[in-house]
Design a binder for these strands. Structure first.
Length: 472
RNA sequence: GGCGCGAUAGCAAAGCGGUUAUGCCGUGGCCUGCAAAGCCAUUUAGGCCGGUUCGACUCCGGCUCGCGCCUCCA
């Protein structure tokens, strides 16, 4: 029995799908005007893990993750760059796809874009006006009348009377109530626009998710997810739009992943304390980053630092080391195996990946061919451990980067190596010379070679089958 | 001001009213020409104050501290 923490009820609830054995899931994706950062990586990886677990549990999953390809920041950035918003957004969609692929994120079933759903949004806004939930202002903007919807605030636990609209932002005078939010923005100079009954303009942010989720999943669907920061106002507004339009509940379960933090502060664009995925991947293996993300529960805050990634790398290395040199095939999982039972119980408990990972380490310790095969199979459920162990262990995890603040030499357990870029050929040549020295009992020379390689970040391991190596 | 979340060993991070979480790091040992890996052993817990209970890290209350949302943000 799968239980999910539902933000709407603030409780863990047994998951009951609307349609037997099917899951419809809508997740708010990215606004594509820049490279994705680690916070975005967390959303992608977390909901990828969730969709994988549903599939492993024999659900037929329809996973929709939208792309916001028109908004203020996109328009501004495109104007700054003197290019069209289409050129700008396509470039960053491509970058996002690359980042996601590296992180082992399976593509969602559908990735609808706002700009190709303008008609559906206009239709929805029209219905909201007809039903008395929205109004067109004199300036051509259309607003949602927040107080026309009884349930406003039910997701975020806010009360309209307690919200302090305009305390930090100037209130738009065209609004009847300061808390009303925009559904349609009248065109301004140098902005892309579409025709509408209210004149040329473009959609507000929230309406795209209401329109696209209804079009692709229906008016009532199972799960709606996204980052915690979208809970209010974005998701609250989506509910107001969708439920007022359709007169039925929008989503049964609302899921929100926790923030990535830096020095105990939220990682965000506005604070400027973010690390892009591609920057991090210059230093750390993508699977290490995925492992790092899944090592914490998805609702908990996740502190980002090089030290934590080093720790994740060491832990993942242990699992790959266990898988080394054996035929661990990915087989159909025997869900009656005691460790598989534990794993399933953990995942069924609101996707408790830290507990599920503890099972992985226990399997690595048991170290029978059966347990290692199960380790690899369960790893696949999490999108981990599918690489060839030697390939993982010999990959260049580190590159030279001694810029201040980039690497904590005191906290890290691994030092940077200037010569980490030794070629495989060079390494093998040195290993061969050491082997010769060993044969001649010239241990002094053998140890000299070992030390030289160690200084370059290469660890040698003598086994009955010969000498193998890995990168520290 | 309103609303919400959290506080676990050196670091990270879970479950659980009584029985080893797990990983990294540290220490001792086995193994090894020396190592590495692995294995065995081992040191470090549950913010503070009360309450409930035979028994609380786990439930309840208060306090302190940290964080988040109330504005675009994953």
């Amino acid at each position: 029995m799968l239980k999910i923490y539902n933000t709407l009820t603030r409780n863990k609830q047994t998951f009951v799908p609307i349609h037997v054995n099917k899951v419809q899931m809508y997740v708010c994706g990215m606004t594509v005007y820049d490279y994705c950062h680690i916070g975005h990586a967390r959303v992608m990886v977390v909901f990828d893990m969730i969709s994988r677990w549903f599939r492993a549990s024999d659900y037929e999953v329809t996973y929709v993750r939208n792309i916001t390809d028109v908004d203020d920041k996109i328009i501004q950035r495109a104007n700054d760059n003197k290019e069209s918003i289409g050129e700008l957004t396509q470039r960053f969609i491509d970058a996002m796809d690359e980042d996601a692929a590296q992180l082992g994120v399976i593509r969602p079933n559908l990735e609808p874009r706002a700009t190709t759903h303008i008609d559906a949004m206009i239709a929805m806004i029209s219905r909201l006006i007809e039903k008395g939930h929205a109004y067109a202002a004199d300036n051509g903007d259309v607003f949602y009348a927040v107080r026309s919807f009884d349930g406003y605030g039910k997701l975020s636990g806010k009360s309209l009377d307690d919200l302090r609209a305009g305390e930090r932002v100037e209130v738009d005078s065209a609004k009847k109530d300061p808390l009303d939010f925009v559904l349609w923005k009248a065109v301004k100079p140098n902005e892309p626009n579409w025709d509408s009954p209210w004149g040329p303009g473009r959609p507000g942010w929230h309406i795209e998710c209401s329109a696209m989720s209804a079009q692709h999943l229906g008016e009532h669907f199972d799960i709606h997810g996204g980052g915690q920061d979208l809970q209010f106002p974005h998701h609250e507004n989506e509910i107001a739009q969708s439920e007022a339009t359709h007169s039925c509940q929008m989503a049964n379960y609302w899921m929100h992943n926790g923030f990535v933090r830096v020095d105990d502060e939220k990682m965000s664009k506005s604070l400027g304390n973010f690390f892009t995925i591609r920057t991090v991947l210059e230093t750390y293996d993508a699977e290490v980053v995925r492992f790092f993300i899944l090592r914490a529960h998805y609702r908990s805050p996740l502190n980002y630092s090089d030290k934590h990634l080093d720790d994740a790398k060491a832990a993942l290395t242990r699992l790959y080391t266990a898988l080394r040199g054996i035929d661990a095939n990915v087989n159909a999982i025997d869900w009656n195996h005691p460790q598989a039972v534990r794993f399933k119980a953990a995942m069924d408990d609101d996707f408790n990946t830290p507990e599920a990972m503890a099972v992985l380490f226990d399997l690595a310790k048991i170290k029978t061919s059966e347990s290692l095969s199960l380790l690899k199979s369960l790893g696949r459920v999490l999108g981990l451990l599918q690489d060839d162990p030697e390939a993982f262990l010999q990959r260049k995890h580190y590159v030279m980067n001694l810029e201040p603040g980039h690497y904590d030499l005191k906290g890290g357990n691994l030092d940077f190596n200037v010569n980490a870029g030794l070629s495989d050929e060079k390494i093998n040549t040195m290993i061969n010379s050491r082997t010769e020295a060993k044969k001649a009992k010239n241990y002094e020379e053998a140890d000299r070679v070992r030390q030289e390689l160690a200084d370059a970040g290469i660890v040698l391991e003598d086994t009955p089958q010969g000498t193998t190596w890995r990168r520290a």
